[in-house]
Amino acid sequence: MRRLKVALGAARGLAYLHELANPPITHRDIKSTNILLDERINAKVADFGLSKPMGDDEKAHENKNDGGYEAQVRFRIRVQGYLDSEYYMTQQLTEKSDVYNYGVMAMDKTKVLCNLHEILDPAIGLQTSLKGLEKFVDLAMRCVEESGANRPAMGDVVKEIENIMQIAGLNPNAESTSALDSYEVS
């Protein structure tokens, strides 16, 4: 439940940036170290150092006359392994790049079993049938589609995670528990 809440919180943050902020914002550096958790395990998107507004003028010129800025972005993203495959052709980081990076945090299709062994608690194991897990894996795989046009919008990601949580019998709008309350006392 906590991991789904973190995934939902991060998706909600990105959906806000892409769809509700005025002007909309592309984060351009989504990775696990830029998703912070508060004392109630609520996810917060952080580090806006590489973000850009998505207004028409900014979109048209976002990669021109940036000096070394774009090279810095390419270096940082390559080092982390979070480079949107379309970036090589377009030289543009877009909201679909954020979707790709979000998917990479959940699913690395270059690793054995798509990195599921790192997502699931060892106590749960890969043999356990978890309600909604297959849908979550499918969602993460769609987020890392090679073509940005085939990736869902972050608002759609939010809706799908909320649906997955409901399938699993969880309330997507319930307040997260505090860090201290989430640990069992032995």
Rank of each mutant, 00 (worst) to 15 (best):
Y183K: 15
I119S: 05
I77M: 08
G132V: 13
L130E: 03
E184D: 13
V45P: 02
K5W: 06
D57E: 05
R142V: 02
V6E: 05
I25S: 08
I119C: 10
L133S: 05
V6N: 06
N101F: 02
E62N: 14
V79W: 11
V73E: 00
A174R: 13
E134L: 13
D181L: 15
F75R: 15
L8I: 05
I164W: 06
R28Y: 03
V158I: 12
G55D: 12
G81F: 12
I164Q: 04
R142H: 10
M165T: 05
R142P: 00
L126N: 14
E95P: 02
I30T: 01
L4F: 09
P24Y: 00
A71I: 09
V73I: 12
A21G: 07
A21Y: 04
N63S: 08
T26N: 07
L17M: 15
M154E: 05
P53W: 04
L126F: 03
D138Q: 13
M54P: 00
E70G: 00
Q166D: 01
N150K: 15
T26C: 15
K64N: 02
M89K: 08
E39C: 06
V144A: 01
H61S: 02
L130Q: 06
N22K: 15
S85V: 13
G155M: 03
R74P: 06
D121I: 11
S176A: 15
G132H: 15
R142M: 12
S147I: 14
M107N: 09
L93F: 11
H18D: 12
F136K: 06
N173V: 01
V6F: 03
E19P: 00
V137Q: 06
D29F: 02
A11F: 14
A179D: 04
T94W: 03
K52C: 03
Y87W: 13
A10T: 12
P24Q: 04
E145R: 07
H27W: 02
S182H: 10
Y69A: 09
K52N: 01
G55N: 08
K64V: 10
I164P: 03
C143T: 03
N63K: 09
S178K: 05
P23W: 11
K44H: 12
G169C: 12
A21F: 00
V158K: 08
A149Y: 07
S186Q: 12
G55Q: 07
R76C: 13
G68T: 08
T110M: 10
T110C: 04
S147T: 07
M89V: 09
F136H: 02
K52D: 00
Q80N: 09
Y87K: 11
R12M: 11
T110A: 14
A43C: 01
E95W: 00
H18K: 10
T33L: 07
A140H: 05
K159T: 08
K5A: 10
M165V: 11
D98S: 10
D181Q: 11
A15D: 07
L180Y: 14
C143W: 04
G155K: 05
L133Q: 08
K111Q: 15
F75S: 14
H61Y: 00
A46P: 01
V144D: 02
Y87F: 14
T128C: 13
M54H: 02
D56S: 08
N34C: 08
L20G: 14
P152C: 06
L8M: 08
E175V: 11
F136T: 00
Y87I: 12
G55T: 09
R2M: 10
P122F: 09
E62F: 03
K135I: 06
K131T: 07
I35F: 04
I77K: 09
